[in-house]
């Protein structure tokens, strides 16, 4: 019998510290699979954020540089300009990219920086204990919105992908989810295309990943995976939001 599925080479054999059923681990897995398949291990530089994925450098067997909170796009800009031949990606959560780092992200995108942002959207602040994030859905209960998010007080969930698609320098923006086998394969395809856009020097690329957070949503892992399909996708529709490459598939 032939082994057809095993741990990717660029994923270190360290047990993840994430909660059971977390979307971060799935994203780490598909990204390291891609890095192996595209043979990028020696020239990829990742920028993990503060947040649940702060220890991403313990798992990715590539070069990584930790950034200050929200400043991933700024650090990536510097690294990419210093090493134009490297593949630079930022790995950011919604508290990082959509809250404290909004300015950096929009301006990096507007400058058309040749970097890739992997944006994990789980609709709460995960590491700090499930407070409301800018991406929290209306009427979603969190520890800081115990009666549900009210648009009159807390405003509306922010859609970073649509915002960045309006900016001239962005080349490829797609929203995917990691909550079913089909969606995971689509997410991998999207990240592959985002890396390809960067290799082809077309501009800023971002993949927004709707990611389950069972612990802070107070659900079982399977329930949280279903909740993305039932509730979250209605507010954050999946699909390609901007694509200037014209090609349907990067393959």
């Amino acid at each position: 019998m032939k082994k057809i599925y095993t741990r990717p080479k660029s994923l270190k054999r360290t047990p993840f510290h994430y909660c059971p059923g977390c979307g971060h681990s799935i994203t780490h897995k598909i990204m390291t699979e891609l890095i192996d398949e595209m043979n990028l291990q020696d020239k990829t530089i990742g920028i993990p954020p503060p947040g649940c994925s702060v220890f991403a450098y313990n798992y990715f067997d590539i070069d990584m540089a930790e950034s200050a909170h929200g400043r991933g796009a700024a650090v990536a800009t510097g690294l990419k300009r210093a090493y134009p031949e490297a593949i630079v990606f930022t790995y950011q959560g919604d508290g990082d990219l959509a809250a404290i780092g909004t300015a950096e992200t929009i301006h990096a995108s507007n400058r058309g920086e040749n970097i890739t942002a992997i944006f994990i959207n789980n609709a709460v602040y995960g590491m700090t204990g499930g407070q409301m994030a800018p991406t929290t859905l209306l009427s979603q209960k969190t520890t800081t919105t115990p009666y549900g998010r009210d648009d009159k007080i807390e405003g509306y969930p922010i859609k970073m992908s649509e915002i960045l698609a309006l900016v001239k320098g962005s080349a490829y923006i797609e929203r995917v989810a990691v909550n079913s086998p089909a969606n995971i394969i689509k997410a991998k395809k999207a990240i592959r295309k985002a890396f390809q856009v960067q290799i082809d020097c077309l501009g800023f690329s971002m993949v927004e990943i709707l990611s389950p957070c069972p612990t802070n949503w107070k659900m079982s892992p399977v329930e949280s995976w279903k909740w993305i399909d039932e509730v979250m996708v209605k507010e954050f529709p999946l699909g390609v939001i901007k694509d200037i490459t014209g090609k349907k598939d990067a393959g």
Partner: peptide
């Protein structure tokens, strides 16, 4: 059947699949 769906969805990368 070795379809590897379990391995694709496993968040901990704990599953290895063999197919003959």
């Amino acid at each position: 059947t070795g379809c590897a769906i379990c391995a694709v969805v496993c968040p901990e990368v704990a599953i290895e699949v063999y197919r003959g």
